[in-house]
């Protein structure tokens, strides 16, 4: 393996929990420790050290949330936004935005839940926070996340609130329709595209379609 490959592998293990199973291939055992145990020293120290740095920068927030919850938030943030700066002083720059994204999605969820049948909202997020929200809903292990522009329709299907990830063009069209732009929202899509998008949305149980004056648009299921 060339130099950059070895480094990328080790960094992936430390930052993203990826590739750990290859430890024995690249790391020698010591007299007392297996390769993966030696690698785990770096993996463990990474999170401890950087969460500690965030605690220093966000003392009041930590006090407000409590040590355990802040630690969980900070670890989640670090997985989504690993440091790109030479200084730890910039490590927490994205934490307020990271929290805001999650809060924005949950607010949209609440608005749709409390809305009329067929309520719908669209939100554009810096990372796929819906995956996290759904894991919380289902009581499942919380996933790691990486920044990725994520466009969601948040809509009612019966009394359930659903998330559907949309590609950029159908998202823009649906957002335009919801803003009341009418035909103007459709002008950048072909008839076939609009038909396809609407069919997919309908199959996803998006009841809001019935309240739109005209159609077209589509969705991509995650």
């Amino acid at each position: 393996m060339r130099l950059e490959g070895l480094r990328s592998w080790m960094q992936g293990c430390i930052v993203h929990d990826e590739g750990v199973e290859a430890a024995a291939r690249w790391i020698k055992p010591s007299a007392r420790m297996a390769p993966v145990e030696r690698l785990d020293i770096y993996r463990g120290m990474y999170e401890v050290r950087l969460v500690e740095a965030l605690r220093v920068d966000y003392r009041a927030l930590e006090r407000f949330l409590g040590e355990e919850i802040f630690g969980e938030l900070a670890a989640m943030y670090l997985r989504a936004y690993p440091s790109r700066s030479y200084t730890l002083n910039r490590l927490g720059d994205g934490l307020p935005g990271f929290v805001r994204v999650l809060a924005e999605l949950e607010l949209a969820e609440t608005m749709v839940f409390d809305g009329e049948p067929g309520a719908i909202r669209v939100v554009e997020l810096a990372y796929p926070a819906d995956v996290y929200v759904e894991a919380v809903r289902g009581g499942r292990a919380l996933p790691g996340m990486r920044p990725r522009r994520t466009r969601l329709a948040v809509y009612r299907r019966g009394y359930a609130v659903c998330f559907l990830e949309l590609r950029a063009r159908p998202f823009a069209m649906l957002a335009g329709l919801l803003r009341g732009e009418g035909l103007a929202a459709l002008e950048h899509a072909s008839e076939a595209e609009i038909y396809g998008w609407f069919r997919e949305w309908s199959e996803a149980g998006m009841e809001a379609l019935a309240s739109l004056d005209f159609g077209g648009a589509g969705v991509r299921r995650r």
Binding site: Q11, V15, L50, P82, R84
Partner: peptide
């Protein structure tokens, strides 16, 4: 670190 990331560890 590589690929623009910094682990802030001396690897």
């Amino acid at each position: 670190g590589v690929s623009g990331l910094n682990t802030h560890d001396l690897l």
